[in-house]
Design a protein around this nucleic acid. Structure first.
Length: 555
RNA sequence: UGGCCCGUGGUGUAAUGGUAGCACUACAGAUUUUGGUUCUGUCUGUUAAGGUUCGAAUCCUUACGGGCCAACCA
C-alpha cells in the first residue's frame, strides 16, 4: 500500500484551507443545471467535482435547477437530469429550484430599490445596448436612471402585475455606467416575459436574470463554494456586489475551465441542433456525448467517473483526447464484460474429419479476469464460421491466422489445419476444408502442437443472426466548434455502420444490463431498440487492435 | 485597439523558491488458448527575453500566444 497522497486540485486546496483555518466546519456545494437540455460529458465533470468534494470533505451537495427562463425550459429536461445524476452514482441532499425562490428574489429586488440601488428602465434592449458603451468607451446613463424610489417601487409592482408588455421595461442595478467590467454597467436584473413556467405556471410575468438569481439562490442555500466555469469570471464581481448590498449569506464563487473533448461538441445549443435537425436520432443517440447517449452506448458510470478523475480540474483551456475516455471504458469493461463469440463477416469452414450431424458442447470461461463468472457452453460441429479476415490465401510474414497448410487454435475448442480452399466459379472463396486434431481439445490438449494464433468462431447451424451497430466519432475534425464555418459541416457521415453478426447461442438470453466482450472485436451491449426476435447490439468501443497497427505500418 | 483569465512533452495534470513527476498516446520487447489483458523499457516538456536569488516552471517586468466579456441566455 502506498502512503503517498494524491495531490490536491486548486479547489481542494482552497477548501482544505477554509476547513483548516476554521472558516467553515463543513461545506455546501451545488450542481446548478438549467433544465433546457440533456446533460453531457462536460456536466459529468462538474457533477463529479461538486459531489466529489462533499464526499471527500464534510458537507453536502444540492441539486438546484436554474430555471429562470421559462421559454426554453421543460419538465422533460428536469427528469432526464435527475436520472443522469443518479445513474452517475450521486445523490443530492436537497432538490431545489431557483423558481422556489421567486418570492424571496422579488423581495431582494425591492430591497435594492429601497436602497436606491436599482431602478426601472423604460428603454428597450437596443437602447440599453447602445447606452452600454464598448470595452474601450464608457457607457451613458439611462434617462430613467434617477427616478425616485417611490416611482421605481410603483413601476416594479406594476411590472409584476402584468401591466406592461414583454420587453417594454426592465429592472436594472444602479452601479456605474463607466465601469471597466461591462457587467457592472447597470446590469438588467428582471425582465418581463408573459410566459408560462414549467413549475410556477402563470404566477409570474417577470423573471430574474441569471445574476439576480444564481448568487442569491446560493446564498439562500448557504452554499459555501459555488463552483462554475471560467466564462463566469466577470460575473463574480456582480455576484459579490449583490450579496454585499443585500447583506445576505456570503457564498463565494470559484471558477474552473470547462472540459472540452475532441471530435465532439459539448454545448447544449449545438446538441439541440443535432437533435432537432435529425443528424442523430435523439438526445440519447449512442453517438451523442450526452450522459444518456453514453449510457445507451454501453459506457458505465464507473468509467465516466474514472475519466473525470483522470482529466482533473484546472483553469487553463483544454481539449481532452477522447481516447482517454475510451481507455477508461475499456479498462472497466475488461474487468466486468462477459466474453462471447460473434462472427461478423463469415467464411464457412468444413471440418472434414468431424462426423456429419454430430455436435458437442464445449466450455468456455465467461471472463478470464474474473473466475467467479464461471463458464458457458458453446456448440461445436462439422460446419463453422470464422471471420473472413482471419484467412489469407497468400499470407504475409507475421500472419498468425489461418492459411493453406497453416494451423490455428479455435478458441476453447480444437486446433485445426487448413487443407484446401474451395472456390466458386468466379474465383471467390466458397469454403475452407480443414481437419481437426481430436486430442487438441482445450484443457485436454495432449497433441503437443504449438500454434501462434487463436480464432473466434461459431457453429454454423447454431449461430443466431443479430444486428450490430458500429459507431465512429460524430465529427471529422478535432474541434468542430472552433472551426470557421458551421460545426455541422464537419459531421462524420460514416458515424453509424450497421452490420449483421452470427452469434453464439448463449447471446440469445442477453439482458439490457449485461456488458459483453465479443472476442477479438470489442465491447457491446444490447440496444434499447432490441426486440425478442431481433437482437440489436451497440458497439461501445473496439478492442485495441495491434494487428491493424502492424498492417498500417506495411502500407 | 479596454478589462479580466490562462500558458509545463502529442494530450490531460502534478511539482506552491531546492532532483520537472504521473496518466493517456506513440514506439520497442516479454507473456498470452482474445494480435485483448498483464508486465518491462524508451522517446518527447516548463512560450520568449530580461530581472531578483546560492538556486526560478514557481517571484517581478516586458513581449508573444490562447480564451472570455458589449443577450431582456445561463
Amino acid at each position: 500500500m502506498s502512503i503517498e497522497e494524491k495531490s490536491l486540485n486548486f479547489l481542494e486546496e482552497i477548501i482544505d484551507g477554509d476547513l483548516n483555518n476554521g472558516k467553515y466546519q463543513s461545506i455546501v456545494t451545488r450542481f446548478p443545471p438549467e433544465p433546457n437540455g440533456y446533460l453531457h460529458i462536460g456536466h459529468a465533470s462538474s457533477i463529479c467535482l461538486n459531489f466529489g468534494l462533499t464526499q471527500k470533505y464534510p458537507g453536502y451537495t444540492n441539486l438546484r435547477f436554474d430555471d429562470t427562463n421559462p421559454v426554453t425550459e421543460e419538465t422533460e429536461y428536469v427528469e432526464s437530469i435527475k436520472e443522469d445524476v443518479r445513474w452517475l452514482g450521486f445523490e443530492w441532499k436537497n432538490e431545489r429550484y431557483a423558481s422556489d425562490y421567486f418570492d424571496q428574489l422579488y423581495d431582494f429586488a425591492v430591497t435594492l430599490i429601497n436602497k436606491g440601488l436599482a431602478y426601472v428602465d423604460d428603454s428597450n434592449s437596443e437602447e440599453i445596448a447602445k447606452m452600454k458603451g464598448t470595452p474601450t468607451e464608457p457607457g451613458k446613463d439611462s434617462p430613467y436612471r434617477n427616478r425616485t424610489i417611490e416611482e421605481n417601487l410603483d413601476l416594479f409592482l406594476r411590472m409584476r402585475n402584468g401591466e406592461f408588455p414583454d420587453g417594454s421595461r426592465t429592472l436594472r442595478a444602479k452601479i456605474d455606467m463607466s465601469h471597466p467590467n461591462l457587467l457592472m454597467r447597470d446590469p438588467v436584473l428582471y425582465r418581463i416575459k408573459h410566459a408560462s413556467h414549467h413549475r410556477t405556471g402563470d404566477k409570474w410575468c417577470i423573471y430574474p436574470m441569471y445574476d439576480m438569481a444564481h448568487g442569491q439562490s446560493d446564498s439562500i442555500e448557504n452554499v459555501t463554494h459555488s463552483i462554475c466555469t471560467m466564462e463566469f469570471v466577470p460575473h463574480r464581481e456582480l455576484y459579490d456586489w449583490l450579496i454585499g448590498k443585500l447583506e445576505i449569506y456570503p457564498s463565494h464563487q470559484y471558477e474552473f475551465a470547462r472540459r472540452n473533448i475532441n471530435y465532439t461538441v459539448t454545448s447544449k445549443r449545438k446538441l439541440l441542433q443535432l437533435v432537432n435537425e435529425k443528424y442523430v436520432t435523439g438526445w440519447d443517440d449512442p453517438r451523442m456525448p450526452t450522459i444518456s447517449g453514453l449510457r445507451r452506448r454501453g459506457y458505465t458510470p464507473e468509467s465516466i467517473r474514472d475519466f473525470c478523475e483522470r482529466i482533473g480540474v484546472a483553469k487553463r483551456e483544454n481539449l481532452v483526447d477522447v481516447g482517454l475516455l475510451e481507455f477508461c471504458v475499456r479498462e472497466h469493461l475488461n474487468r466486468v464484460a462477459l466474453r462471447r463469440m460473434v462472427v461478423f463477416d463469415p467464411i464457412r469452414v468444413i471440418i472434414t474429419n468431424y462426423p456429419e450431424g454430430q455436435y458437442e458442447n464445449l466450455k468456455s470461461e465467461n471472463n478470464p479476469e474474473d473466475e467467479t463468472t464461471g463458464t458457458r457452453e458453446i456448440p461445436f460441429g462439422r460446419e463453422l464460421f470464422i471471420e473472413k479476415d482471419d484467412f489469407m490465401e497468400n499470407p504475409p510474414k507475421k500472419f498468425f491466422r489461418l492459411a493453406p497448410g497453416q494451423m490455428v487454435r479455435l478458441k476453447s475448442a480444437y486446433i485445426i489445419k487448413c487443407d484446401e480452399v474451395i472456390k466458386e466459379t468466379d474465383g471467390s472463396i466458397r469454403e475452407l476444408h480443414c481437419t481437426y486434431f481430436p486430442d487438441s481439445r482445450s484443457g485436454h490438449d495432449t497433441s503437443g502442437i504449438q500454434v501462434k494464433g487463436t480464432l473466434h468462431w461459431v457453429c454454423a447451424s447454431h449461430a443466431a443472426e443479430v444486428e450490430v451497430r458500429e459507431y465512429d466519432r460524430l465529427f471529422k475534425v478535432e474541434d468542430p466548434a472552433g472551426e470557421e464555418s458551421d460545426f455541422k459541416n464537419f459531421i462524420n457521415e460514416h458515424s453509424l455502420n450497421v452490420v449483421k453478426g452470427y452469434a453464439e447461442p448463449s447471446l440469445l438470453s442477453a439482458q439490457h444490463k449485461d456488458r459483453f466482450q465479443f472476442l477479438r472485436k470489442g465491447y457491446y451491449c444490447l440496444d434499447s431498440d432490441s426486440e425478442k426476435e431481433k437482437l440489436i447490439f451497440n458497439r461501445t468501443v473496439t478492442l485495441k487492435d495491434a494487428w491493424a497497427k502492424e498492417q498500417k505500418k506495411s502500407l
